[in-house]
Write a protein that binds this DNA or RNA. Structure first.
Lengths: 183, 183
DNA sequence: AAACTATGTGCAAGTATTTGCATATATTTT
DNA sequence: AAAATATATGCAAATACTTGCACATAGTTT
C-alpha cells in the first residue's frame, strides 16, 4: 500500500511526469523504496482515478507527449492522514542472508564474491549519500522541519550503509579464515 | 522467488510440518524473511508439486493430522544451485522512512512515538539475537562451515540492529530539539 | 461451563510487484 | 548511415504477498 504514498510524497513540492518522477525516485525516495517505471506509471494512473492526483496532458513538440501529475487537495489530506497509520518493522528480505544459511566448502568462494560485490555497491551508494548530505544538508539545524525529516532518513541510510560495510569486512575476514583452513 | 528457497533452507537438517516450520521461522530465518503461515502452507504445497519437497501425511491421535515435508534429492540440488544465482541489494521498503519525508510541526510527536516503538521492538529483537548468539554461537570458530554462515547472518542482524538503535537515538534527539524550538 | 491457548491445515479475494514486451521521437556518438 | 542514449508511456502475464475467514481437536485456565 505504500508505493502510492511514496509517490504522493515525491509530489509534495513539485508536479512531475511519470518519467521525471521515476528519475527523482532514483536519487531520493528510491533509496528506501525502489519501484520500476511500470509500477510507477500504473500507480500514477490508479491514484489519478481515485482522485488523489490530478493528471494533465502536455503536448510537446520534439519529444513525446507527457502527463504531469500533481496532488489534489484530497491527495494532500490522504497523505497527511497516512502518516498517522501504524507501520511495522520490515525484515531484510535479502537473498544473501538466506544463502549464508547454505554456506559450504563448495560455495564459499561464490559467497565471497557476492559479498564483495555488495560491498562495492554499498560503497558507491555511500558516496552518493555523502554528496547529497554535503550539498543539501551541510547545516541540518537551520533547515525547515520537513527537510530535517528527509535528513534523518538520509542519516538512516548513511549509518545503515556504514554498518553494512563493516559487516562485509567482518564476513569476508571470517570466510577467508575458513578458506585458509581448508587448504 | 525466494520464500521457496528460505523454506527449503529451513529443511536442510530436519523434516518439518508446516506448523513446525512456521514456528522455526519465527526464531531464525524469519528474522530475515518473514512469512505468514498461509504463505508457508501454500509454498510447501507448490514445492511438493514441483518435486522439490516430499510431503508425508502423518495421522495423529489426540492432535490434528499433519504433513511432514522434507527435501528431495532434486530439491537439495536446486537449492545448492540457487546459491550461485545473482542477487540484488534490497531497499529498506520501510514506511517510517517515507513518513519522515512528510515531517511537519503537526505530526512530529507522532513520529517520535513511532520511532520510540521501533526502538523498543528492535531492543527486544536484539535481546533475542544475543541469547541465540550466547547459546549457540559462543565460539564461532569451532563451528562447522554452514553454522558459521548462519552465524554471519546473525551478526548482520546484530550489527544492523545496534546501528538502528543508534539512529533512533539520533533521530529522537533531533526531533526533541525541533519540538523545543517550536514551543 | 466457558474461554483461552496450542496444534494443525487450508481457501478465497485482493493487493503489490516483477518481468517481458511494445511503441514513439530526438539527439548524440561511432 | 547506423547505433546508442534519453525522453515518454503503456499492456499483459506471472509471481508474490497480505488479509480475512474457516475447520477441527486437546488441554489448561478462569
Amino acid at each position: 500500500m505504500a508505493l502510492a504514498h511514496a509517490i504522493m510524497t515525491a509530489l509534495i513540492d513539485d508536479d512531475l511526469s511519470g518519467y521525471e518522477l521515476a528519475k527523482s525516485f532514483d536519487v531520493s525516495l528510491g533509496f528506501f523504496w525502489r519501484a520500476s517505471h511500470q509500477q510507477i506509471y500504473q500507480e500514477l494512473r490508479k491514484l489519478a482515478e481515485r482522485g488523489l492526483l490530478r493528471g494533465e496532458k502536455v503536448s510537446q513538440s520534439g519529444k513525446p507527449n507527457k502527463i504531469i501529475y500533481g496532488l489534489t487537495e484530497e491527495g494532500r489530506e490522504a497523505l497527511a492522514q497516512w502518516v498517522y497509520d501504524s507501520s511495522r518493522m520490515q525484515e531484510a528480505k535479502d537473498d544473501m542472508l538466506v544463502k549464508l544459511y547454505n554456506l559450504g566448502d563448495d560455495n564459499i568462494s561464490h559467497m565471497v564474491s557476492e559479498i564483495e560485490k555488495r560491498r562495492d555497491e554499498m560503497m558507491q551508494r555511500l558516496y552518493l549519500y555523502e554528496r547529497i548530505r554535503r550539498t543539501h544538508y551541510a547545516k541540518p539545524d537551520v533547515l525547515p522541519v520537513r527537510r530535517q525529516g528527509v535528513y534523518l532518513a538520509l542519516r538512516c541510510g548513511i549509518t545503515g550503509g556504514e554498518q553494512f560495510l563493516a559487516w562485509c569486512d567482518e564476513a569476508l575476514k571470517r570466510l577467508a579464515q575458513i578458506q585458509s583452513a581448508q587448504a
